[in-house]
């Protein structure tokens, strides 16, 4: 970690930041904030031009999954003399086209890593998720960053996330001079974010597993964006969990949000969900039901200790913030 003087010196110079996946939730919010900051110069690499593009922001229309694209990206990184890569081009929900998701997440990351290895990169920031720890019966109540990633290998979505982490860890071992930060937000909720969890919690009737009531934690979208901002500004090598303070049992989550939980025994719930997943009615495959059986809470102590970052919203505040907007949506007061 640099001393205060050094970091102040660094801040005087403008830093060039490459952001991929700028149309994602974190991508759009983070790039807007960085574009308004005179200390940073943005270079956007994405397949789709974002809806906003401020002055001084460069945009390269590139599909990072194409073969041989790593050389092109490396040329761009060299030409622009990039200091930092923020890699956010990931899926927020599982999709049925597992080939596409594998190409985007794993091959895309591999291409970005190849290009980053070709230049002297100062920092590489990766977005991961605490889902990669997996929901296992043998999990400790609070999973620390050193815990192995043990998500179910049978699910393409989780397997890809673990593989991406593996690729990036290997990169950080090979390039000790590059600061590699892996940020793992837990279940993210908030007024504007949309992912499979928000669509699950938005329906009035919610399928739960009979007899199981795991503890849940949520992190507010603003806290996640702030955490990425902190990681961009300072040098924090390693993996960090981003979690909201406090936990709630899942039954209490449903009660607080005024939902009706329909409990089904695990085998029945499994067959219902697998049928609905195959029919395209549900955004998640049946293996995700384990996240309703076993706890997968992450420990946010490392981020507090090393980054001096603590989420402003508690788990309950986050839920209330999400449900408040959801109610207004139901009344069609907001969209």
């Amino acid at each position: 970690m640099p001393s205060g003087k050094q970091s102040r010196k660094q801040q005087k110079k403008t830093q060039k930041v490459v952001i991929t996946g700028v149309n994602s939730f974190i991508g759009s919010n983070l790039s807007r904030r960085l574009a308004n900051d005179p200390r940073y110069q943005l270079v956007i690499i994405d397949i789709k031009k974002p809806d906003f593009l401020e002055k001084g922001v460069k945009f390269y229309k590139i599909d990072i999954t194409e073969p041989m694209i790593d050389g092109v990206i490396a040329d761009i990184l060299k030409k622009e003399a990039v200091d930092m890569v923020v890699h956010l081009a990931f899926l927020s929900s599982p999709i049925k086209n597992t080939t596409l998701s594998h190409e985007l997440e794993v091959i895309g990351t591999l291409n970005m890593i190849h290009a980053s290895s070709a230049i002297k990169l100062k920092k590489f920031i990766l977005k991961s998720t605490t889902m990669a720890y997996g929901a296992n019966a043998t999990n400790p109540n609070f999973i620390t960053e050193e815990h192995p990633l043990r998500a179910d290998h049978g699910v393409a979505y989780l397997r890809d996330k673990m593989e991406v982490e593996h690729i990036v860890r290997r990169f950080s071992e090979k390039n000790p001079r590059t600061v590699v930060t892996v940020l793992r937000p837990c279940a993210t909720l908030g007024p504007t974010i949309r992912n499979f969890l928000t669509s699950y919690l938005a329906s009035p009737i919610i399928l739960t597993i009979l007899g199981f009531d795991p503890l849940y934690q949520f992190v507010h979208e603003e806290d996640v964006i702030d955490m990425f901002r902190v990681a961009v500004e300072g040098d924090y090598p390693g993996a960090f969990n981003i979690v909201g303070r406090g936990v709630l049992p899942f039954s209490t989550v449903l009660k607080l949000s005024g939902k009706i939980g329909i409990p089904a025994p695990y085998p029945i719930a499994y067959s219902i969900v697998s049928m609905m997943w195959s029919a395209g009615l549900l955004p998640v495959p049946p293996v995700f039901l384990n996240f309703l059986r076993y706890s997968w809470l992450a420990d946010g102590a490392k981020a507090k200790k090393m980054m001096n970052f603590e989420s402003r919203y508690t788990t309950k505040d986050t839920l209330e913030s999400f449900m408040g907007t959801q109610r207004l949506r139901e009344l069609r007061l907001v969209e």
Partner: peptide, 20 residues
């Protein structure tokens, strides 16, 4: 219509508070 995506979460929260 495409300006929906532009709403940042902070702006939204501010509005939410007023409405609440």
């Amino acid at each position: 219509p495409e300006q929906y995506a532009v709403a940042t979460s902070r702006e939204f929260s501010a509005l939410m508070k007023v409405i609440e």
